[in-house]
Design a binder for these strands. Structure first.
Lengths: 337, 337
DNA sequence: CGCAACCCATGAATCGTTACACACGGTCAC
DNA sequence: GTGACCGTGTGTAACGATTCATGGGTTGCG
């Protein structure tokens, strides 16, 4: 079971040091020796032990990416971007899921700290502050993802959610809508709060417009459907004529609730609908959903780049903060009424 | 930076052995000593080093789950199930993505082998055989997921894809359809081949029915759209009156292609559509899609259970093979024509 | 021929943790 | 009084890989 360098060395008739050299700097070993050692490795089916290697090195070659929801295609796309860039740098990415829960997030981060990961890419929940500080104190670089932070000392990559929210609301207002509903939550998630704030900015500029807040407990399709039932009643009562959902999963859920049941309402006839993220399902919905697109892969790759930079950064220096601009993609769900 | 048991021991005025005991069997240490050590740990911000621990233990407490596509909600749900069950057993799950590529799969498995993971849950690509054999030779238990294997010595959990394929085709035939198209691929993926085979069984039983194969290169929304264009022409030409897609992502893509463009065809009027997996997006599509539902979470939890059993199993004994039955969920996309 | 330079290879020390054999003081039973 | 035993705690040897000072052998050159 336990094939280690020692057995390989013995079999090849060399010392363990030489085996290690064959593995790590074959150019410093005579060709015939390399050959002999390689053969021994193959014959014995030797596989290096990552734990031992890492113990010696003091650090692993793994990056951790903690997201709010693995089931959300937005995050898996970010992950793909990160993975691709990490691979170029010889690093591996492991994906973890906080499910928007601070407790789960903390648990994962602790786990990663014991593993001495090379770095953490974190899509933070509201109460991530302490955990982040702790990681950094312990020398683990952190990059905040999808969040423009107030703390200049932590690198971050984000999309301008305030701008995105504003774009969404402006688009609805330009289409003649005046009574908006914002579906999303919890507002402790910064993406949600920012998108709401952005929409509010647009509302403030237009006389006679208003926006009510319909809170959800999570950014999921199911929550969208739940709140969607309520939205349907409000539309029927003439209280609102547009919905801006904090992400596409919610928007799809809302749409599903609106179109089903005994008294379906029409989209965009009775109510317009805008989502956020522009996941591929948004375009494929019953009524294709207008959405705010974010450069998902670029967010992932950039996050890794910032992390690599972070590893060389000096203590106390300010970090980079990349902010991407989102882009509105208009579809049938917001055809002018 | 490097706070280890040694410093903790020194600070608490005990030996390193005692610190280890406080960490692992606090009941064998006097309460006041435990207290003192705990304080030292807190004061120094000590975090145990997983690599050292694992080196000592010879094995990690991590399970690896390798899936064909992280972006597919089906797999993330399986992952959630696995994670939940693993947590109960004190294990952690790390998710890896093979993207249906044998090469990427192999790379991940090699990586996991160096990490001496406690086990591998594998949704195998076509050429996984060698890798699996190798892992097991090296004492790493493997459970095949979503695949009923011919090899009785490898534990597996699967859904009866042949039955599922048959159900889908029968449903279409009962609805009066006769000329089916099967969209999916590559057929080297067993899920695809089995679903096709199942459908073929149903076709064989009904006179005058037929099924053509439209191959895709992957089970993605994008591939669905690509082939969908072709499907549209065939429908227009009256060559087919129903489509069975190997999974929901493809079905959604096909639908999107059918409904867009200059000459959209009607679903289910001109052509019926059945998908597979019953991901939540299927119900939320333009025309809600009939699909074959699989117990996603149960697949994940069961896989972990089998793995736990596997760890205690004796060499050479046959393993458990759990097969779930799928369930057809009829929706608008297959209303009888 | 002698010395330096170079190439290869060696083997011990090291990383942080745990297991284990052992020590120590005290109590209890016989 | 002897020995067994208990509750606590200690110290050290692993685990597997890498690093690095060291050394032996060969080569080149004066």
């Amino acid at each position: 079971m336990a094939v280690s360098v020692r057995e390989v060395a013995q079999r090849a008739g060399v010392s363990v040091g030489t085996v290690s050299n064959v593995l790590n700097r074959p150019d410093q070993v005579k060709a015939t020796t390399v050959e002999r050692v390689r053969e021994a490795i193959a014959e014995l089916g030797y596989v290096p032990n990552a734990a031992a290697r890492q113990l010696r090195a003091g650090q692993s070659t793994t990056l951790a990416l903690v997201v709010l929801d693995v089931s959300n295609p937005f995050f898996t796309d970010v992950a793909r971007g990160a993975e691709a860039r990490a691979e170029e740098a010889g690093l591996t990415v492991t994906l973890a899921n906080s499910d928007e829960s601070g407790a789960r997030e903390r648990k994962h981060l602790e786990q990663f700290e014991t593993q001495r990961v090379a770095g953490v890419l974190l899509v933070p929940t509201a109460d991530a502050g302490d955990s982040v500080a702790r990681l950094r104190e312990h020398g683990i670089p952190v990059v905040l993802v999808d969040r423009s932070t107030a703390d200049a000392s932590v690198a971050s990559v984000a999309v301008d959610d305030v701008a995105g929210g504003r774009m969404a609301a402006e688009h609805l207002l330009e289409g003649g809508r005046r009574r908006l509903a914002f579906v999303g939550g919890p507002h402790s998630i910064h993406q949600v709060a920012d998108r709401y704030a952005g929409a509010d900015l647009a509302i403030a500029k237009v006389d006679g417009s208003s926006m009510v807040r319909l809170d959800t407990e999570a950014l999921t399709l199911e929550e969208g459907m739940r709140v969607g039932a309520q939205v349907r009643d409000m539309v029927a009562a003439g209280e609102i004529d547009a919905v801006f959902a904090a992400n596409d999963l919610l928007a799809i859920g809302v749409q599903q609730a609106l179109l089903s049941g005994p008294h379906p309402v029409s989209i965009p006839g009775d109510v317009a609908l805008v989502g956020y993220d522009d996941i591929s399902f948004a375009a494929a919905a019953v009524v294709p959903i207008t959405s705010v697109r974010q450069p998902r892969r670029a967010i992932g790759t950039t996050a890794v780049e910032l992390l690599l930079a972070e590893r060389e950064a000096v203590e106390g220096a300010t970090r980079d903060h990349v902010v991407f601009q989102p882009e509105l993609v208009a579809r049938a769900s917001t055809q002018p009424s």
